[in-house]
Design a binder for these strands. Structure first.
Length: 800
RNA sequence: GCAGGUAUGGCGGAAUUGGCAGACGCGCCGGUCUUAGGAACCGGUGGGCAACCAUGCAGGUUCGACCCCUGUUACCUGCACCA
């Protein structure tokens, strides 16, 4: 009688596979549903239960959609290029191709044991040549359209990984992969001009249904600010010093200027700068600092005055000193600022350190103590004096600047262009040839894919050049344009490249002539529901939205935004409440759970353990609770009767169908499961149920625990697969009880409850309430001021 | 510092969005079966003998507040010398 999951689960997995039960159908007349989960990076450690939770959400929704009659695309793939695999290859001497294949095989077997309803004919592997051919194709299209450029720049460089990192990958001055300190290094860098799409990435958020915190993070990341560019002049030199400010109305309060140490004007006028030695020394000092040090020493302002040149304030003609200081970044705005110490705390700290004048232009604070950054009346500001509204004073100043031709309104973004090359082997080769005559020449489209050469030693070079630079047969080539001797680019793309468009390939994974067929794209796109981790909300999602918008612009995809809806699951913490990690030894392997309790129990537990979107610790004993539930469901098979059930149980069924249906849509899986547990308790209390009722129950539970449900469905004589059987419907009228319990309150405090027919009017309930001994006692001798009746809920008597 | 969020039994968490706080599960207590059980099953379980007291803390609005408002504390997540 005990449920034998060890034989029943593999049985159904095999049947689903043979029948291709979960294949998405191209060219179907049915309504489509495209559910997308973030494809995993196949690491050597295999999956942990966090992956299972991440996929189980849309697994349940996709399964429900199929039962509701949708044509469902629910695919899986592997984001397999990347450093960990390459580092493992360096350490062990096993080729990354082999490592990747082994890891993918391991992940696949783990996923299959859990019984996910993926369409296994559409598996995508970003390291497959037939896949990265199209990643390179998109890159060339971007190159063609002016979205790719190369520049020598100070970049985030990880000395440990020996690789250039994008801004996104080096947050907080730490390498995202190995967590070493990042240093700034001058290098040739490939950039993708994502900033060109900044405004559209921002405005596109209005059209999509993302969780509010996801939207907010993207908004912050793009970091749009509105302000003005102002051209200062250098005294006695015909040269402009351009700055960006959000408060042009404080121009009268400018007492000095600050430039980033790397600002090109220093080099241009080094002959005029009398203390050039000190300036160079300071520059050298800054270059040595890691990003971490540069941002940590917030309070201690350092800098050097440029002796010999000074700036002229365009609104009042005053000459003001210029400093270089590392609190101004070359990468934001123009790399130079006008300093208004009275109303900016950083400028204030700097002015105090260097003994510079502080002029108040906004009244309201005490500038002898700190900068005043709030609103107030404008003073010492010429034509702005007396204005009290920030908006108006900014507008008036902008008008003045534009009239005089010394500045204009402008916007800035925190988002920077995307540093796109890595000096590594295990990535997509950048399909560009460097020709001494023709410059950068794209590899012709018909030569794609540009394959990674087979090689053995993946150690990067000491100066951070790619391992590919050592392969002469790869490097030396003919220029596709002039036919002369040329050299290939040896850097590869970052890991984010392959994941920027994978959801398009799922739609037509074996297409040899296009990244996907336009008709199929038109049918399946956009992704209806995308679920993943919060950690990918800024990087992966912004990158892929950018690529998708570009593909839309060149007519490859049919919609501007790739994801109609985005949600995020919470982490599973270790039993100790800490984040699961190998070093802490608190990782739970899904295989162990399947071995001991079965896939259905694992699936049920990861969704029952708490609110889907928040983090919750793993609890072995709670897993056992789900095991008991599954066993009790199995036990129902021996409780079936042909005849009708009690009205009470029938009503409980209708209520549960309603609740589970709506809870799933809101990802409230924990309460959906709780409702089915409650119904189970009701069934056991009742002692029996009809076979029809059991049929309803197993279809409701099927998205969560499909194996046991298939088995019960078969034994009940259900038609076809339970997984494809129609989703149960409920009768609204039967979800309502005939009698309801009404709480009777005195002055808002519960005093008694009464049973009343549903939808009773106030008089009926009032009579019932007053018939209660407790109520009669409570109101005895008191004056009734007011009576409030909420139908089917409460009756409140207010007494004095 | 900026932005967003959270706070409910011993634990994970519910609460139809202003209407009986603690659903469901774990744990715990008691029982049944057993040579035994860290197995299974059944029953009980916020605190207090009680009146009553309980949703981080202090107020407010309301007939009625976990829910709305004001203030406050703690924690989490993201960004951060962004001009």
């Amino acid at each position: 009688m005990t449920y034998d999951f060890k034989s029943i689960e593999p049985k159904w997995q095999k049947i689903w596979d043979e029948k291709k039960a979960f294949s998405a159908v191209d060219g179907s007349e049915k309504k489509k549903f495209y559910g997308l989960i973030e494809f995993p990076y196949p690491s050597g450690a295999g999956m942990h239960v966090g992956h299972i939770k991440a996929y189980s959400g849309l697994e349940v929704i996709s399964r429900k959609r199929r039962m509701e009659g949708y044509n469902v695309l629910f695919p899986i793939g592997f984001d397999a290029f990347g450093l960990p695999t390459e580092n493992y290859a360096i350490k062990t001497g096993i080729h990354p191709r082999k490592v990747t294949d082994m890891n993918i095989a391991k992940f696949t077997s783990q996923l299959r044991r859990v019984g996910f309803s993926f369409d296994w004919d559409r598996v995508v592997d970003t390291t497959d040549e037939d896949y990265y051919k199209w990643t390179q194709w998109i890159f060339l299209k971007m190159f063609e359209n002016g979205l790719v450029f190369r520049d020598t720049a100070l970049v985030n460089y990880c000395p440990s990984c020996k690789v250039v990192l994008s801004n996104e990958d080096s947050q907080g001055g730490k390498c995202d992969i190995c967590h070493s300190d990042i240093i700034q290094k001058s290098k040739d860098v490939w950039y993708l001009r994502i900033t060109k799409y900044a405004d559209r990435l921002l405005s596109g958020l209005d059209e999509v249904d993302y969780l509010p915190n996801i939207k907010q993070q993207q908004i912050n990341w793009i970091g749009k600010s509105t302000g003005a560019f102002v051209n200062f002049t250098l005294a006695g030199i015909d040269e402009k010093l351009r700055i960006y400010t959000t408060r042009p109305d404080t121009l009268f309060g400018v007492t000095f200027m600050v430039m980033a140490p790397e600002h090109p004007i220093i080099e241009k006028y080094k002959d005029r700068i009398k203390n050039i030695d000190a300036v160079e020394a300071y520059k050298a000092e800054c270059a040595k600092k890691t990003e971490f040090e540069r941002t940590q020493l917030v309070k201690d302002k350092t800098g050097v005055r440029l002796d010999g040149i000074c700036a002229v304030n365009p609104v009042n003609g005053k000459e003001i000193p210029i400093y270089i200081a590392d609190y101004v970044m070359m990468g934001y705005g123009t790399g130079a600022i006008m300093a208004v110490p009275a109303h900016d705390q950083r400028d204030y700290d700097f002015a105090k350190t260097f003994g510079i004048d502080i002029i108040e232009v906004i009244k309201g604070g005490d500038i002898t103590k700190e900068a005043y950054t709030e609103d107030g009346e404008m003073v010492n500001s010429g034509f702005l004096n007396g204005m009290t509204n920030k908006k108006d004073s900014i507008a008036k100043m902008l008008e003045y600047l534009e009239e005089k031709g010394i500045g204009e309104a402008g916007v800035q973004y925190k988002m920077k262009d995307w540093a796109f090359n890595r000096q590594r082997y295990w990535g997509e080769p950048i399909p560009i040839v460097h020709c001494p005559h023709c410059g950068m020449v794209p590899v012709p489209y018909d030569e794609l894919p540009l394959r990674l050469p087979d090689m053995q030693n993946f150690e990067p070079g000491q100066n951070g050049e790619s391992p590919l630079a050592k392969v002469e047969t790869f490097v030396n080539c003919k220029c596709p344009k002039c036919g002369g001797d040329a050299k290939r680019e040896t850097d590869t793309m970052p890991q984010w490249a392959g994941s920027s468009w994978y959801f398009l390939r799922y739609i037509d994974p074996h297409n040899e002539n296009a990244l996907a067929d336009p008709e199929k794209l038109k049918y399946w796109m956009p992704v209806d529901w995308y679920n993943g981790g919060m950690e990918h909300v800024t990087r992966h999602m912004i990158y892929s939205r950018f690529w998708h918008k570009f593909l839309y612009d060149i007519g490859v995809v049919p919609c501007d935004e790739p994801y109609a809806k985005r949600t995020a699951q919470g982490l599973i913490l270790g039993p100790d409440g800490e984040k699961m990690s190998k070093s802490k030894g608190n990782v739970v392997d899904p295989n162990d759970v399947v071995d001991e309790y079965g896939a259905d129990v694992l699936r049920t537990y990861v969704l029952f353990m708490g609110d889907y979107t928040s983090a919750a610790p793993w609890s072995e004993s709670s897993v056992r609770g789900c095991k008991r539930f599954i066993e009790r469901v199995w036990g129902m098979l021996f409780m079936t009767k042909g005849k009708g059930s009690t009205e009470k149980l029938e009503s409980a069924f209708h209520k549960t169908v309603k609740k589970v249906s709506s809870d799933i849509e809101q990802m409230k899986f924990n309460t959906a499961i709780a409702a089915m547990m409650s119904l189970t308790n009701d069934i056991y209390e009742n002692g029996s149920l009809t076979t029809d009722e059991l049929g309803i129950f197993v279809r409701l539970l099927c998205p969560f625990a499909p194996h046991i449900c298939e088995e019960l469905w078969e034994r009940l004589g259900g038609k076809g697969l339970c997984s494809l059987a129609p989703w149960p419907v409920y009768d609204e009228s039967k979800t309502k009880d005939d009698t309801v319990t009404i709480a009777v309150q005195i002055c808002g405090k519960l005093r008694d409850t009464v049973q009343a027919p549903a939808d009773s009017d106030q008089a009926t309930v009032e009579a019932l309430a007053k018939a209660s001994e407790k109520i009669a006692k409570a109101i005895d001798g008191k004056q009734i001021v007011k009576e409030i009746y909420v139908k089917n809920k409460i009756f409140n008597i207010v007494v004095k």
